[in-house]
């Protein structure tokens, strides 16, 4: 899998650390429940997700990308 870095260009995924951007659904309104959801629960989307990846072995910056989790073609990574 190749992740396109806005600073370094196309770089292999083992240079990166994956980070989820948690999205708590609006249907959960209780503040405590929202905290629990943020800590433990996941949308686990099959499709396009917005994520933060840290370019550990490169520019050492957080980069927000979009990635298709259902897509077998792992190089199909777009800058978001």
């Amino acid at each position: 899998m190749i992740i396109t870095c806005p600073h370094c260009g196309d770089r292999p995924f083992d240079e990166w650390v994956h980070g989820e951007i948690p999205v708590v659904p609006d249907t959960i309104t209780d503040p405590d429940e929202r905290d629990i959801d943020r800590a433990y629960f996941h949308n686990n989307t099959e499709g396009v997700v917005r994520e933060a990846w840290f370019h550990l072995a490169g520019c050492r910056r957080w980069v927000v990308i979009t990635r298709d989790t259902s897509n077998g073609v792992r190089s199909d990574i777009a800058r978001g």
Partner: peptide, 8 residues
Amino acid sequence: PEPSYSRR
């Protein structure tokens, strides 16, 4: 390390 449904 990253979540995915891909079976590649």
